Simulated assay, not measured.
Amino acid sequence: MLEQILLVAGALVFGVLGLIHLIYTFAGSAFVPRDAATRAAMEATSPRLTRETTIWRAWIGFNASHSLGAIVFAVFVLLLAAGHMPLLREAPVFAWVAAINALAWLWLARRYWFRVPFIGLLLASLCFLIAALRLSF
C-alpha cells in the first residue's frame, strides 16, 4: 500500500510540473527572455541543423515536448500504480525505471534549471526510490 501511495505521489509531482510547464510555454511570458533583443535574435536566427525553423520556434517546441514527456511519464506511472501493483511487485524493474528517470531529471534540474523544479523532482525521486526499494525487498 505504501509503495502505491509513493508511486502515485511521485507521478503527481511529475504531472503537475509538466502541466504547469506546458501552460507556461503557451500562455503568459514566463519563458520569454527578459531582454527583448534576445527574443528578436532568437526569432531571426535558425540553427545550423536546418533553416526550416528558428531558434525561437525550436525553443517553444522543446519546452512543449519536454512538458509532454513529463505528463506522459506521470500517466504511465499512475496507470501502473493504480491498476497493476501485482505486476510491480513481480517485476520491480518498472519502479526502478521510474526512479532512474526521476533521478536523471533531478540531475538536469540541479545542473540547468532552478529551485522549484529541483525541489519537486527531489520529492518525486525520493518517492520512486523508496517505492522501488520496498518493492524489491
Rank of each mutant, 00 (worst) to 15 (best):
R57P: 00
A64Y: 12
A44K: 10
N63I: 08
P47T: 09
A36H: 10
T54W: 00
A58P: 00
S67C: 09
S67G: 11
A36T: 11
L49Y: 12
L68I: 15
P47W: 09
A36V: 08
M42N: 02
T50P: 04
V32L: 11
A36K: 11
L68W: 13
F31G: 01
P33K: 02
T54V: 03
T50V: 09
R39Q: 15
P47I: 06
V32R: 14
V72C: 07
A41M: 06
L49N: 07
A40S: 10
T38G: 00
G61P: 06
I55G: 01
V72S: 06
I55N: 07
W56R: 00
G69D: 09
I60Q: 12
A70E: 08
L49G: 11
F62V: 12
L49A: 14
S65E: 10
L49Q: 13
A70F: 06
T53P: 00
R48C: 02
T54E: 01
W56D: 02
F62L: 14
T53S: 15
E43I: 01
V32W: 00
H66N: 14
A36D: 14
T45V: 08
R51W: 07
F62I: 11
A44E: 07
I60G: 00
A44M: 10
R57M: 06
T54K: 04
E43K: 13
S46G: 12
A37W: 05
A40Y: 00
G69H: 11
T54R: 00
R39L: 15
E43P: 02
A58I: 06
R51F: 07
W56E: 01
A37L: 08
W59N: 14
R34C: 05
G69E: 07
E43N: 05
L68C: 10
A70I: 03
R34A: 14
N63S: 15
E52I: 10
H66I: 08
R48A: 11
A36Y: 06
W56L: 01
A40K: 12
E43Y: 02
R48N: 09
A44N: 09
S67V: 07
G61V: 06
R39S: 04
G69L: 11
M42Q: 13
R39T: 04
T38W: 01
M42H: 05
